[in-house]
Amino acid sequence: MRVLTIEDDRATASVIADELTVHGHEVTVATTGRDGLALALSEPFDVITLDRMLPELDGLSLVRTLRERSVSTPVLMISALSDVDERINGLRAGGDDYLIKPFSPDEMLARIEVLHRRQAVAPPNQTELRVGDLVIDLIGRTARRGDRVEKLRETEFKLLEFLARNAGQVLSRRMIFEHVWGYFFDPGDNLINVYISALRKKLELPGERPLIETLRGKGYRIDGRD
């Protein structure tokens, strides 16, 4: 994956670049808004990470300009401003996701990968999702493991769908809380854990292969391999 990082703080830029490079992605760094815009317009990238406050041209104007020029590369906005209004401003201007500083590199990577996947896989008339032996019926709102069909509650279904659409990807509790519930504050560890447990009770019967993995301090993942 080719990633453009537009970030004026060298330390943050190197944290982003290091983490992405370690995971085999190719990173180009721009340190001003103007340079970043020029690069984004001229070269094809898979994802852009964009600092909200930049010299010369700020992040909001930059992403707005990109969208005006029909560049639809997914943009992860990174900002020290955690307020919901700031987030909404960022997303309204054309950003696709919003990450608050200080962030953990895992979560940054996870968000970039989720964005990339969302861009890459978007089959229009999909009626089911398959991850290993798990089949999610997107119309009947049920989950099937083997020949067992489980009825899921609305929230459980949204949670499972989010995990399955990003199979193999570690998703932090914040990401889950934002995507599944639409709330933008830290819910603490326990809340999401309880919902995950409920899913496990329905989808991981004794003797079955564990489906959802908990990575302490990092988040949750559905293993995509068979």
Partner: peptide
């Protein structure tokens, strides 16, 4: 809080790399 989080983020990144 502001000044400490960047170095802390870096320390965390370093530890994270070593752990891999």
């Amino acid at each position: 809080a502001h000044d400490l989080r960047t170095p802390l983020t870096r320390v965390r990144a370093a530890l994270h790399r070593v752990s891999h």
